[in-house]
């Protein structure tokens, strides 16, 4: 074989090797390159199955709600974006601790709604009508977010949590794996976390130090692959 022949053979062999590696990786991932999206569904299902009594249909908001064990806050996600009246993903929480801490609800931005002693904060994902292939279930509604609005799902490496972005840096997060929910070898043991961006609330008069039932603390959040330290109002729960 001449020099060019050898080169072509070497390039071909290298290309075959690279293709084989990529094929093996894709096969390992179950044929889906979006491993975070795909595996977050399984993980969310585990959460739903862990506290089935806390998962209910929310007729008013046109979706499903996952209530915190203490009932003070719920994560709500829509069944049908064309039907949901306010937000498609949101937190509904008791306004009392914030009002007591100085909240003037009139000063809240547009993504907040206050009624009947409750605050709702979230975002619209779309307006399209949802057609379920099978039965409409809480998990199917979550899958819809993954499949159609993937950018609202993220993975928080420092916490080993999945999360749904609710707009304006508000989040609902849950442990990727409750069994191994540890970070840097320290048992963190927070299986679900409701997180609020404190800035709009503080701007609306809340004194963060006076809010009861919520932890006002710095937490590390991911922006791309960057880890940033920011303050949040947190309500973490251990489900086990």
């Amino acid at each position: 074989m001449n020099k060019n022949g050898k080169l072509i053979a070497a390039v071909a062999a290298a290309a075959v090797l690279v293709v084989a590696i990529i094929a093996a990786v894709v096969q390992t991932a179950g044929g889906n390159l979006d491993v975070v999206g795909k595996q977050s569904i399984t993980s969310f299902e585990t959460i739903l199955n862990t506290i089935p009594d806390n998962v209910k249909e929310d007729e008013i908001n046109g979706g499903w709600s996952l209530n915190a064990p203490d009932g003070s806050v719920s994560f709500i996600w829509a069944k049908d974006y064309s039907q949901s009246p306010l937000h498609d993903v949101m937190l509904e929480l008791d306004a009392a601790p914030f009002v007591s801490a100085g909240l003037d609800t009139d000063k809240l931005p547009d993504n907040y709604a206050a009624y009947d002693g409750m605050l709702m904060v979230g975002t619209k994902l779309g307006t399209e009508k949802t057609v379920n292939e099978g039965e409409a279930t809480p998990l199917a509604a979550y899958e819809q977010i993954v499949n159609k609005h993937r950018s609202f799902i993220n993975y928080h490496m420092d916490m080993d949590h999945y999360g749904v972005k609710l707009g304006d840096d508000n989040m609902f997060e849950w442990a990727k794996n409750m069994e191994t929910n540890t970070v840097k070898n320290q048992n963190q043991d927070k299986d679900i976390v409701f997180a609020l961006n404190p800035e709009p609330l503080i701007a609306a008069g809340v004194d963060p130090e006076k809010v009861e039932g919520w932890v006002y603390a710095p937490v590390s959040v991911m922006e791309g692959a960057k880890t940033l330290e920011v303050y949040k109002f947190l309500k973490p729960f251990n489900l086990k």
Binding site: V25, L33, V36, I153, Y155, M157, A225
Partner: peptide
């Protein structure tokens, strides 16, 4: 994005 699509 590495956190959203780590495999890609």
């Amino acid at each position: 994005a590495p956190m959203e699509y780590p495999l890609i």
